[in-house]
Design a protein around this nucleic acid. Structure first.
Lengths: 152, 152
DNA sequence: TATTGTTATACTCTATAACTATA
DNA sequence: TATAGTTATAGAGTATAACAATA
């Protein structure tokens, strides 16, 4: 039986996406959503968003990082960061330590629990990255990274 | 003068992003944000989000599209779509027309103003796409699309 | 009973502006 | 005066659950 354009027997419509199909912006968004979903639902998912893990990485790699510097680094407003850090703090993963040099500033630190969580999250990231690029060769993955870098 | 790791003369900290730098998920997110920003702030930007333009395209290409089918097609809940369609409707770009076949359904249509807006938006998209991939050759752009397709 | 669209509600992400405590 | 962090507030995006109209 020929498939009627626009519908099938399940009543699920196969939409015409027109010019959307081959737009970098659109494909970027689709890929990003897929990556996010996979990250959140994968086996051994750390119960943290990719953004939260990113914050843990940055705190780990940059001793005495202030909220201001972190805000600038990840490109979100300092006020936006407050709730994110509150959540990580409530979960016992980070601490805000008042700077003794300039008492307006907080120096961000991982707690021991945060360190352990980060170690596990990094292992998970490796696994996730392999799953995400499972259909790509090593060369293709490198090419993709280079091309994305040119756009971002 | 050698640059001290972690800071420079402006007091702007060059953060260590660690393993983040070469993760597909992270680069995807960065590229997507850059694409979105460029779309919204470019010359001749249509005053619509990429998502809104996408909805206009889908309505244009799929006659008698229902909210249900659109919801399924773009992968958002039907309740989420309501506010989006309200906004497009308030701006006079689309109409909801009660189906005479099944009066529970709305058939979505572009208004004449919506048609004109879409025509302009499509021209803008071409311009935006060229700007976004300005640093890529035609081959590289095609490669990027193919690789993104494998992930999304 | 089931489906379509709407509403009520809630949570996240985002920003701007005003506040506080420090500098 | 200016800066670091917080709070108040607001808007967009997302979802689930319950509802009215219709099938």
């Amino acid at each position: 039986m020929a498939k009627t354009p626009g519908s099938n027997q399940d009543g699920i419509h196969a939409l015409d996406f027109g010019q959307l199909t081959d737009l970098v912006g659109y494909r970027l968004r689709k890929a990003q959503i897929a990556a996010y979903q996979a990250f959140m639902t994968g086996r051994d998912a750390p119960g943290l968003t990719p953004g939260q893990v990113g914050v843990l990485i940055l705190i780990d790699r940059n001793p005495a990082l202030t909220q201001q510097a972190l805000s600038y680094g990840i490109g979100v407003d300092k006020s936006t960061l407050v709730a994110t850090l509150d959540r990580l703090s409530e979960r016992g993963l980070i601490r805000r330590v008042r700077s003794s040099v300039d008492r307006r500033q907080n120096e961000l630190r991982l707690t021991p629990k945060g360190q352990r969580t980060l170690t596990e999250a990094l292992a998970y990231i490796d696994q996730h990255e392999r799953a995400l690029t499972a259909r790509l060769s090593d060369d293709e993955r490198a090419t993709l990274l280079a091309l994305l870098h040119k756009i971002g």
